[in-house]
């Protein structure tokens, strides 16, 4: 089977939400530069797919493409996907411990610190502010709020530290939720050049869902396709912080040629594969 090829969609989420467009706020990459991909690191990627045959004339396998979206200011995707949930839960447990410790300190009136209610309230406020801020994801059509993943998550910065929000106008730098691709369409799909679908996998890194497509390499040419991308904007209403889904689109291309397929491990030689001498 051919090497599966990856197309990375990197989004500057904050800038895209501010500009209300992905134009100028995306960077695309693939691992097909060896075969002649163009526009890597820009918003206009042309992925080269050498398709039809091997050097000896034998028919090449179909090509598989995988799309993975990431955010420039998002938590690194190599963290376990349970990171947000674990961190949120642990912070709750820590808060409970802090309250217990406070109760003991009040009971013994440590350092004669708790002489009036105001001093107790101050300590309580300190503990609750370190507990972080919870946010739910709002559904796209009905405005229903639900948890992100299996439990309620707290808002963090890109280093995974919980943040406190003083007011909506003064939100500290946050870890923007990783964008998701919700669909792939356009010319390449309409002309049956690629057959995309969302697939599930047990892989913990990509959260189990990714878009993938088989390419009909029998028809050389350059074909456009459109990615539907969902970003999340942090917003506050009805006393609740929520991630509001924002839908955007961006376009990229594949260029199928009838050049021979190349093998990256043999330095791209178009010739018989160097067979190891045993």
């Amino acid at each position: 089977m051919s090497q599966q090829l990856a197309i990375i969609l990197m989004v500057d989420v904050e800038a895209a939400l501010k500009d209300n467009t992905l134009e100028g706020n995306t960077y695309l990459f693939d691992n097909m530069k060896l075969q002649g991909s163009e526009g890597l690191g820009t918003g206009k990627l042309i992925s080269a797919i050498n398709g039809i045959s091997y050097y000896d004339g034998s028919q090449a396998d179909k090509q598989i493409l995988n799309w993975l979206p990431y955010g420039v200011g998002s938590l690194p995707p190599t963290l376990p996907k349970s990171f947000l949930a674990d961190k949120s839960k642990n912070s709750d447990l820590n808060t409970i411990e802090d309250f217990k410790a406070l109760a003991e300190r009040i009971e013994t009136n440590e350092n004669s610190q708790f002489t009036d209610i105001a001093s107790v309230v101050e300590e309580l406020k300190k503990i609750s502010s370190s507990a972080g801020v919870k946010a739910k994801v709002q559904s796209k059509f009905q405005g229903i709020l639900h948890d992100l993943g299996i439990s309620e998550h707290k808002i963090m910065d890109i280093t995974g530290e919980l943040i406190t929000i003083e007011s909506e106008g003064k939100i500290p730098e946050i870890n923007s939720l990783t964008p998701i691709i919700t669909g792939i369409s356009g010319e390449a799909v309409d002309k049956n050049i690629i057959y995309p679908a969302a697939y599930g996998s047990p892989d913990m890194v990509t959260d189990g869902w990714y878009w993938s497509a088989s390419v009909d390499t029998y028809r050389p040419g350059t074909y456009a396709y459109t990615m539907d991308v969902q970003l999340y904007k942090l917003s506050h209403s009805d006393g609740q912080w929520r991630w509001i889904p924002v839908h955007m689109r961006c376009e990229a291309y594949i260029r199928i040629t009838n050049d021979f397929k190349k093998n990256g491990f043999t330095n791209a030689g178009v010739g018989s594969l160097p067979l190891p001498i045993i």
Binding site: I8, K33, L34, Y70, V72, K170, P172, E173, I174
Partner: peptide
């Protein structure tokens, strides 16, 4: 927003 900056690097490791 208070401004922290994220710098993200993408590497084609095999290449």
């Amino acid at each position: 927003m208070e401004s922290k900056i994220s710098i993200c690097t993408v590497v084609d490791v095999i290449e």
